[in-house]
């Protein structure tokens, strides 16, 4: 029998004094760890996610995220640290996607049926591992919807090391990858190894997805991997500015999400998705508004000119 504490009684109260609030929050080592891990993940997801949205591979990211759930559940069942399961399953799945040509993009009905079946089967395997591991049922929600509790200092170190390695790899291939993403045909003609770059990027995407799943949960990786990047691409077409905006949005969403989750009983995944979607919708509206104003200005000028 799973015994759960009554959650509502134990929640701290927001005192409207940010300095005392932050100091009170960071008095707990687990909150400090959560902020460190969240920051690392937000930067990694912001950068990799920007390339993913540019390459239109958000569907591959979605598939990799679904795989991280059985990964973590399998590792827990076998008694290994879940971090190992996350990275092993995600990178493995990335290599499988890379091996199948044209996979990772939603195509015809038959391809979509296959992808959907494999994803559902992956989730079913995760559920099987959880069911076999008795007494773990309470933890299933934090695997799926994210949790900031119980992030250890070791986990932060592992995440930071993986993120540093991933970003260093990306820095090496950043320029040719940008070229290959924007115009693969011209890049191939110019001698850029498009296929190798695509495989390398999928592996990087696998590590980024595995890292993001540990904060937002398996089902909500879109919150940090896709939404900040999509926001950035609504606002600017310049790569350097776009990457910076993507990382900044990711950081802002993660930090506010952590603070909101600390002061309420609701899961962090809910706050992170809500804030990230809010920023994305705002960016889209701003862009539409800017276009309307730009169209209106000459039109009204012409109108007033003809009226005179």
């Amino acid at each position: 029998m799973v015994t759960t504490m009554s959650l509502t009684d134990t929640y701290p109260v927001w005192s409207w004094n940010p300095v005392t609030d932050l100091r009170a929050m960071w008095a707990f080592p687990f909150m400090v760890n959560a902020f460190r891990a969240g920051t690392v993940v937000a930067v990694l997801a912001g950068v990799i996610g920007w390339y993913m949205v540019l390459r239109r591979q958000s569907f591959a990211g979605h598939t990799l995220a679904q795989v991280s759930f059985p990964g973590a559940a399998c590792a827990t069942l076998l008694g290994i640290a879940p971090v190992v399961g996350y990275f092993a399953f995600c990178v493995g799945a990335a290599l499988v996607i890379a091996a199948i040509p044209r996979a990772g993009q939603s195509g015809s009905g038959q391809e979509a049926a296959l992808t959907g079946t494999v994803q559902a089967f992956g989730l079913a395997c995760g559920f099987l591992f959880v069911a076999l591991y008795k007494g773990f049922l309470g933890g299933i929600n934090s695997l799926l919807f994210g949790s900031f509790l119980g992030i250890t200092a070791t986990q932060v170190t592992v995440l930071a090391a993986v993120a540093a390695a991933t970003l260093a790899m990306l820095a090496v291939i950043a320029r040719p990858l940008l070229f290959a993403s924007v115009d693969p045909d011209v890049a191939a003609v110019r001698g850029v190894p498009v296929r190798v770059l695509s495989v390398a990027f999928l592996v990087l995407l696998g590590t980024a997805t595995a890292a993001t799943s540990q904060i937002t949960g398996t089902l909500l990786v879109f919150a940090l991997l896709v939404m900040p990047a999509a926001t950035a691409q609504q606002l600017t077409a310049r790569p350097a500015v776009g990457l910076a905006v993507s990382v900044l949005v990711g950081l802002a969403v993660t930090w506010t999400g952590l603070i909101a989750a600390y002061y309420s009983p609701y899961p962090i995944g809910f706050f992170v998705t809500t804030f990230a979607l809010g920023v994305y919708v705002f960016a889209r509206l701003a862009r539409v508004l800017a276009q309307v104003l730009a169209r209106r200005a000459p039109a009204s000028a012409r109108l007033s000119g003809s009226a005179v």
């Binding site: 929600n141 089902l219 879109f222 995944g269 809910f270």
Partner: peptide
């Protein structure tokens, strides 16, 4: 993005 948010709302 919208459907990820709907799942978050479910949580």
């Amino acid at each position: 993005s919208v459907f990820a948010w709907i799942l978050g709302l479910g949580a």
